[in-house]
Amino acid sequence: MDPKKMLIAVDASENAQRAAEYAARIVGATPGFSLTLLTLERPPERDLYKDDAAHRAACQAREGEMRAAQGAIKAVLVAGGVPAGMISAHYVASCKSPQAEGADQCSLGQSIALEILDFAKAQGCGTVVVGRRGVSKAEEFLFGSVSSKIVHNAKNCTVWVIS
């Protein structure tokens, strides 16, 4: 695992933006680094919508939001001095999304944290960068925390958790 191959987990949150800003400050245009932006789609649950049409519309909206966020994060990195050629972006659709039909790869969505680590391993990324929401212990118990789970489950890689 190459520590200079960095994976930045990206969603539509401010935490992801902070993570990208931090990575840009550290890496800048230093030769030898590569930054992989990974967005795992998490569509709204089907159960929350009255019918398939409403769910499909919500999934489309979520996808648009997440793709836009990934574009914005890339812009943050470039603005922070990272050459565009050092950045690659991956968007993995959710297997549950109606939009995922025909996709080569899809996200099972059972654990975003474990999927991020699997992706990092497959890409040989030695550094994983995630933003932290700063949830309370009670919230972490009830809903889980992606960053905590990454920290607990990471093997053979370094994890940066950006608050």
């Binding site: 998490r42 709204p44 649950e45 159960d47 929350l48 969505g109 654990s111 975003i112 944290a113 118990f141 009830l142 809903f143 889980g144 925390s145 992606v146 789970k149």
Partner: peptide, 11 residues
């Protein structure tokens, strides 16, 4: 039902 979270069974 709830929105999906990292630990959907926590509740």
């Amino acid at each position: 039902a709830y929105e999906a979270y990292e630990n959907p069974f926590g509740m």
